[in-house]
Amino acid sequence: MSNIAAAFAHGKAFIAFLTAGDPSIEASERFIDALIEGGADLIEIGIPFSDPIAEGVVIQAANVRSLTHGTRLDHAFELAAKVHAKTETPLVFLTYLNPVFHYGYEAFTARCAQVGVSGLIIPDLPFEEQGELKGIAAAHGVDIITLIAPTSEQRIAAIATEATGFIYLVSSLGVTGVRSEITTDLGAIVRAIKAHTDTPVAVGFGVHSPEQAAQIGAVADGVIVGSKIVSLIAEHGEDSAERLRDYARQMKEALRSR
């Protein structure tokens, strides 16, 4: 059992994503501090990958920027360790499976535990393939955070029953990126999930505005924002901290109304 439950202990959770090393590891640390000050309940640190197949153009570009600046896996671990040393806010990694596999499941999850990373979100590791990693991660107190999509349908029961940490509900078809409108009946999917588990459900993909956060907060336990934060960083570069603090404050405020 990880400390992820703590993220859902203060009302509806605001979960903030950024790509480690975009534009620099030092900046990522300042940005995470700012997001937490603004009210983020959980930080999702993206490990940059050469081929992020689940990402839209905004986060793809952040991956390219980070890798071009020379971000290595070690830097992401060091970033997590620094943040963890000064905050209790839970941290998770978003990573594609290959860096984890290549590092070794045992070594990777042991190091996650060491640096204070409580969970792993792996977009290319669906439920049926989680067995090879999940037990090893659990032995180190690291949750494999499973995803459920609008297309999951009859698979929801099995996935939800086994879920730990939180469930990442994908709002709509497609890759990550800001969407003006989310047409999926999220309430119905959340109800289907809740019939099988008490694990909190947070909604991501396309979420960016306080209005959306308030709407989704009415049916789910939290929202996850990635592309909007990454686009603020792309726009303001090293000077993004203040904007991110304000943005997190607005989002958390919108969720408090729920």
Binding site: A54, P126, F127, L147, I148, A149, T151, Q154, R155, V170
Partner: peptide, 11 residues
């Protein structure tokens, strides 16, 4: 194996 996003699994 089938190491793909959840959205594609049913398909």
């Amino acid at each position: 194996g089938q190491y793909i996003p959840e959205t594609l699994m049913n398909e």
